[in-house]
Design a protein around this nucleic acid. Structure first.
Lengths: 215, 215
DNA sequence: TCGGTAAGCTGACGGCATGACAGGACAAGT
DNA sequence: ACTTGTCCTGTCATGCCGTCAGCTTACCGA
């Protein structure tokens, strides 16, 4: 469906072309990790990749376009997040397990992709629909699964009827994303990495089940 | 202690100078609201303010410097957030009131300053200490107050001892900030503005007291 | 009223990034 | 060797950056 990779001027890219294209993306990713988004220039990426700016423009319309590409790549990888919540139990001791694993998986994913996720978050907050869609793609599976869990507990009468499953699930996921993005910030409040996770898991558990966890 | 406003080359700014300086800040603020941070150029801000780029550089080292200034202004205004939590009760029905008011005040503040806060968030996430400090300044009062509330409930035996007050408070505040920044995102999941607030308040209440609210 | 002084502003300039193009290098098949 | 299509780069016009010298304006004391 997606078909081949194409250059800006419409040619299909061959083996060599794909390689340089990928190299440009890799270098861009490195640059995003090491310098502020605002200061990432085409010429720097090209230099780092050992090629010329003109080459960059053959594959991407601009820096933003290339970033979108990186983000799409990451979004595909984000499918793994689904496994953290789908088909898990939210009852008894298992619920605590589920919470902990969700938190760990989520923080880990965010740490692996923090540079690109920062930019996606910014773009989404600025109202750019393309970034917004990518952000959704990553979060939506987790959010929906959590919402389903809440609905399920509601149908069993374990959670109040006037709770909005989508609102609660979305808020919890937003919390995980925000904490992951500002992990360093917590150390300033004297919060160690190790104690952050269980407390996040506690909040997730409380939010979904409305009960203290059984450990 | 702070003394007078100074130009980049060391002169003290008079009435007129302060006025243009402020005008530049105002125009920058507008530009941040209407176009992506990456695309905000000195020349555009200057044009909008009816002055020349050279004038801009008399008052600010670069766009980032001016943004920091705007952020400082906002941080001062952020003192009002303290009132949302300091000296409030977290027991019984009052706790629900407190939760609701905290959520409403927080979301409102974020909506009023969303453009700057986006940039501050980005800068902080990128590890820029200056932005990071400003973000702290805004959030720290709320976070500390919430942490105190948790400690207080712990001392009364109403909350488990192994909960880290700072971690829980920080995470809840991060959640509020994230939800505020991506409010539009929730509408896509079919969550209305109106139902978002009570559900956030519920999560805050659960996180602090570990109990369902009494409404 | 009249300089004197410092504040305030801008035109102009070298430097660099952008983005487009045409043409040359290269690989593969014939 | 020749052709074909892919791939890369030199070059160029354009526009923003950031600085400086120099001009204008406001204030103030004599």
């Amino acid at each position: 469906m997606t078909g081949q990779v194409r250059t800006v001027d419409g040619r299909v890219a061959g083996r060599r072309g794909q390689a340089t294209r990928q190299k440009l993306l890799d270098c861009l990713s490195e640059m995003l990790s090491s310098s502020p988004y605002r200061d990432v220039k085409v010429i720097d990426v090209a230099r780092k990749a050992g090629t010329s700016p003109a080459t960059f423009y053959q594959y991407f319309p601009d820096v933003e376009g290339a970033v979108l590409e990186l983000a799409e790549e990451m979004a595909k990888e984000g499918a793994e997040l689904t496994e953290l919540v789908s088909g898990r139990s939210w009852v008894g001791k298992a619920a605590w397990q589920t919470s902990v694993q969700l938190v760990e998986g989520f923080l880990d994913f965010w740490r692996r992709h923090d540079a690109i996720l920062r930019v996606v978050d910014l773009g989404a907050a600025e109202g750019d629909k393309r970034f917004y869609k990518i952000r959704m793609k990553i979060l939506t599976s987790v959010t929906n699964s959590l919402a389903d869990a809440v609905k399920d507990l509601q149908s069993k009468g374990k959670v109040d009827k006037d709770v909005s499953p989508a609102a609660v699930a979305g808020s919890l996921v937003a919390m995980l994303a925000a904490v992951a993005a500002h992990q360093k910030g917590f150390t300033t409040w004297g919060v160690k990495q190790a104690e952050l996770k269980p407390n996040l898991a506690l909040l997730v558990h409380l939010g979904i089940t409305e009960k203290k966890p059984i450990k």
